[in-house]
Each structure stands twice: as C-alpha cells, then as structure tokens.
Amino acid sequence: MMPFRTLPMRGLKAAAVAAAVSLGLLAAPGARAQEHEIKIPDTRYSFDGLFGTYDRGELQRGFQVYKEVCAACHAMHLLSYRNLRDIGLSDAEVRAVAQSYQIQDGPNDNGEMFERPGRPSDRFRRPFPNDAAARAANNGALPPDLSVITKARVGGADYIHALLTGYEETPPPGITIMEGMHYNKYFPGHQIAMPPPLTGEGQVQYGDSTKATPDQMARDVAAFLTWAAEPELETRRTMGVRIILFLVILGGLTYAVKRKIWARAGGDHVS
C-alpha cells in the first residue's frame, strides 16, 4: 500500500489554481448579462436547473396559446408540424393540426401556385407572406419569428413570461408613450409595439382542467417556446449525466493507474 500522504498535494493545488483561473474566465460573460438594468422576475419551470425536463401537458397548452393567440402575427418557421410529436401529440393529432392550415405549394404543371391542406412535413405556416406585409399590418413593427426566441433573449423563458404579463395601462409619471405603442415594465426601453396579447381569463379554452389565467397562459407559452428553441434539451441532459458519470469513474481508474505507474519511479513528486 502506498501511504496516503504521498498524494501529490501540490499537484492538486496546481489543478485547483487552474480551475480557479478557468472559473475566472467563465465569470466574464455572466457579468455581461447584467447590462440590462431591468430585473426580470424568476418564474419556476419544470425544465429549470440542470436536470429539469419538460412538462408535456404544459407544452401542449403552450402550443394552444401560440396557435390561437401568437400565431396571428408571429411565425415559427424553423418548426414543422411533425415536431409536435415531441410534445406528446399522436400522429393523427399532428396530421389534424397540419391539415387545418392551407399551405401554398407549386408551381403545378400549369405553372400556377396553389393551396393545399398542410402535411406533417410542412413548416409552421407563416402569418404573413413577407416582412413588408408583416410591418404593413402591424403599424410598421415587425413581429419577430419565435422559433429560437428563448435562446435569443437574456432571461429566456423568464423574460417571455415577464414580458407577456408586464403591461401596464398607465405608464409611470414622466414617461410619454408614442402613439400605437404600449408600456411594458420588462421590455428594453419600455415602449413596445405589440398590444397586450393575453387579455383575460378564458381567452383560450384549455382541454385539461387548468385555468387559463393570463399568468398561466404566459407560463405555458414560454415553456412551449423554450421547447421550440431547444427540442434536444432532455436528450442532451440525459446524455450529459451518463457521460459525466462515466468520465468520473474512468477518471478514478486513470488516476489509480497513474499512481501505480509512478510508483515505479518512486512516486510522482511534484517539486
């Protein structure tokens, strides 16, 4: 047996220093997020933390909110109807959702574009044919595509929830809101072109017993948008747990091998 005190403590110390240096590096972008002085309230989600997973019921409710409210203006053109199987819809349900949309296709043999019912392989239909049409219908403002919106905003799902519930009818004194704009506590600059989208309870009829309060709808749609941006999240985390556990065990074995090999040279004495 090798006495325990021959552990290369200084080596470990050096490794600790290395870790501290890299942590110092890691702290840098974290600091960057604080640039936005507006504090976004933390909403609790099932996918929070390192090991959280999606709540399928919540995702389906969120999809319903998107479909019945947001989709009037916001595209999600990176998603296809077939992706909805991931949130627990059956093949028949996916087909039904797709068929409820008329998708432009073509040109046909006569060189004409035509409309047909959607298929699961179609991308989500865009509400406007192009950005100019979207602006024309929205007082000059362009509703952003929501496919990766939670990855594209500081705060992610928390920000979406805060934004959707952060409207105030009368802005605080001293702030004048331009015509056609709305005051929102959490929007950078506080003036947002989007009118309050979630206006009252029962705006959406949920199929389960969940009460469709504006707060609940905001949470559900934020969860849905998180899934849309990171559909691989659950696979990724499961794989990560396995790989890190494997590496920890392999690391222990490797360290034992290294100690045994160095014993031949009288031990690894880091000077």
Partner: peptide, 21 residues
C-alpha cells in the same frame, strides 16, 4: 502519457458540463 490522461479526463468533464448542461 499516464499523467496527461488524468488531466485529459478532468478536461473532458469540464467540457462535457459545458456542452450538455
């Protein structure tokens, strides 16, 4: 080679944490 392997595993753990979490 043995000592670098130890460092390599630690490096992979940090790397995997970033990628997967």
């Amino acid at each position: 080679t043995a000592k670098d392997s130890v460092g390599m595993i630690v490096y992979f753990i940090v790397f995997a944490f970033l990628v997967f979490f």
